[in-house]
């Protein structure tokens, strides 16, 4: 097991390094000036002095300086919001995105798995058909549609939740639900397929022959096996949910991390952009490793193969 962990960690580091190199190349290639803020043009010597100050006048230099800082978890200054450091911005926005993302995955799991199980157990019933319709809708409808609809219906018409923003617990449910829907749809689909496979397997027949009740067979025998593909879906999905869905944040006006990717690119803010990308890729790699470990822990057949 430790062997696998070490191998995965090394592979992960290599991945992050490649991502850093590629992103950096793109960042320094796009035209545009990070220091230009308003309508006035900055004089060239001020600009070059600022570039020198931040080690940005030489790309190689900046590459290594930034990397050195990044390893110490210091992503340097940001030029769009000059009073803040990248660290402060990421530290302020990452927990917000994480709480929405984790809450969304929790909802997706807690609602999606039972629906998937029920629809597999009662195939072709009205429950199954409505579940399949839900899957289709959840995957097809874009989040800005569902998010805006929820915002208007619940926030404005029913007045049950605040209209966007962040700060109290009541700001959490709507964006979390919106974000959970596409994931929920996939989880329902995976669980349903996994359950149908598991329920037709021999060991289910053995369990029934032992005298286990139908409920026990479904939840204690079939489901653990059916959930394994869901688990491997969960890894990258959680990373994606956690690092901020730009669309959900935009619709609900939430100061999360997703917007920093987009805004930093548009504002030519290299520090924030690279910082956000590094944080995202680290989270993605970490979640994948965690899922691999969990999978190996839960399915003994896998750890054999490693």
């Amino acid at each position: 097991m430790t062997r696998m962990l070490v191998r995965r960690l090394l592979a992960g580091l290599l991945t992050i390094a490649c991502i850093y190199a590629i992103t950096f190349t793109m960042v320094v290639s796009i035209p545009g000036n990070p220091f230009q803020q308003g309508q006035h043009r900055l004089s060239s010597d001020v600009e070059s002095a600022l570039l020198a100050r931040y080690h940005m006048d030489n790309n190689w230099l900046y590459f290594w300086e930034f990397l050195r800082g990044a390893v110490r978890l210091d992503f340097g200054p940001t030029f769009t919001y000059a009073d803040w450091t990248c660290n402060q911005i990421i530290a302020a926005s990452l927990p917000i995105s994480m709480s929405i993302g984790l809450a969304a995955m929790l909802i997706a799991l807690m609602v999606g798995v039972p629906i998937g199980v029920t629809s597999a157990v009662r195939r072709h019933s009205w429950l199954d058909i409505s579940a399949t319709t839900l899957i289709l809708t959840g995957i097809s409808l874009p989040t800005f549609v569902t998010g805006s609809a929820l915002l208007i219906a619940v926030g404005v018409k029913l007045q049950l939740a605040p209209v966007g923003g962040w700060g109290t617990l009541s700001h959490l449910p709507l964006p979390a639900i919106t974000l959970s829907l596409p994931f929920m749809a996939y989880i329902v689909r995976l669980t349903r397929a996994g359950m149908i496979d598991a329920l037709s397997a021999d060991f289910v027949r053995t369990a029934i022959a032992k005298g286990a009740s139908r409920q026990r067979v479904i939840w204690r025998h079939a489901l653990p096996v059916a959930l394994l593909p869901v688990l491997s879906f969960l890894g990258p999905a959680t990373a994606q949910a956690v690092t901020g869905s730009f669309v959900v944040e935009k619709v609900f006006g939430i100061p999360g991390m997703g917007q920093h990717f987009v805004n930093a690119a548009l504002n030519r803010d290299p520090g924030l952009l690279l910082g956000a990308v590094l944080v995202f890729s680290t989270l993605l790699v970490a979640f994948n490793i965690v899922v691999d470990l969990l999978y190996a822990a839960l399915d003994p057949r896998i750890s054999e193969a490693l």
């Binding site: 397997a201 021999d202 060991f203 027949r205 053995t206 369990a207 029934i208 022959a209 032992k210 005298g211 025998h221 653990p224 096996v225 839960l298 399915d299 003994p300 057949r301």
Partner: peptide
Amino acid sequence: VRGARVAMVFQEPLTALHPVM
């Protein structure tokens, strides 16, 4: 009755036993 009074042994134990338990 199942298991307690009448029990069954199946042909292919690799698939008949639970893979993860």
